[in-house]
């Protein structure tokens, strides 16, 4: 079977997975809540923060993207996987000449496509609100507010969205990995959330490592920092968008992308290790 055929199958499975996900009430309500939340950031107007208001709106939008994106990434992936298992749709597909890895890759891509949709909608809404408020503030403060260049780098809003999407990819792959050996949806979601928290906080252990004395504790912390991917790496929202002293260099963005891709692929392969043996 050729690579092209294999690619077609992955694409087909991803397509239906995505369509099924988009039609889920859960996705739509979460998307609505997130959009409403981002839109509600306009309430910062009442505090009359001046140009500071834009920072509040951005923090708020990025926070919503990070928070709801993480929830969606985990729950949607777990649900899409277990739906197919429980409804035996997986059985009809895997009874065809379809490799289990193709099935997993298709499921992942479907979920990842869903996250792309989510991320795009949130970043677009956020950019729209920022654009509107920026215009209002400039009108209020006068043209001198723009003397040093625009208040907002809109490209950065999308760059942050992209980096978060890369992180959601790792998260979805981790969820798929957990799902590959667990029997229930709930267990998968709970364990994946724990993984998310550990990955988000592992940098603390790593920072502590450098200050520790040699011994098994140091060894343990060292291992901890290596086993879990560093999600804090993608937490660059505070360093983007506004004209701060340092712009995020392109090489750093490339490194982050590579890091995200490597971990995503690795976790899908690890999921395959369990899934191969699993009774469908």
């Amino acid at each position: 079977m050729s690579a092209a055929e294999s690619f077609t199958r992955v694409r087909l499975i991803a397509g239906t997975t995505f369509l099924e996900a988009v039609r889920q009430k859960f996705f739509n309500s979460l998307l609505l809540i997130s959009v409403a939340l981002v839109a509600s950031s306009t309430f910062f107007q009442q505090f009359d923060f001046g140009a500071g208001e834009l920072k509040f709106i951005t923090d708020f939008g990025f926070g919503a993207l990070f928070f709801f994106g993480s929830i969606l990434s985990i729950t949607a992936t777990a649900q899409l996987f277990f739906n197919e298992m429980e409804n035996r749709t997986a059985l009809t597909m895997l009874a065809k000449p379809v490799y289990k890895l193709e099935f997993l890759a298709g499921k992942f891509l479907g979920a990842h496509l869903l996250m792309l949709c989510f991320t795009l909608v949130i970043t677009l809404v956020l950019s729209g609100i920022l654009y509107w408020r920026e215009a209002a503030i400039v009108a209020q403060l006068g043209a001198e507010a723009l003397a040093d260049g625009p208040l907002i780098r809109y490209g950065d809003v999308f760059l942050f969205g992209f980096l978060q999407w890369m992180k959601f990819g790792i998260l979805a792959a981790i969820t798929l990995f957990v799902a590959s050996f667990s029997n229930t949806n709930l267990y998968t979601i709970v364990v994946s959330f724990f993984m998310l928290i550990i990955c988000q906080l592992q940098y603390i252990a790593r920072d502590a490592y450098s200050g520790m004395e040699a011994g098994w504790e140091r060894f343990f912390v060292f291992g901890l920092g290596l086993i879990f991917p560093n999600f804090q790496l993608f937490n660059v929202g505070d360093q983007l968008v506004f004209d701060v002293e340092q712009v995020l260099p392109a090489t750093v963005v490339l490194r982050m992308t590579a890091y995200g891709l490597i971990y995503t692929i690795a976790f899908i392969l690890l999921a395959q290790l369990n899934f191969r043996r699993r009774e469908i």
């Binding site: 560093n230 790496l233 937490n235 260099p249």
Partner: peptide
């Protein structure tokens, strides 16, 4: 891959 990027982010 990660360490230099992490230095910058940190």
């Amino acid at each position: 891959v990660e360490a230099p990027a992490w230095q910058v982010v940190k």
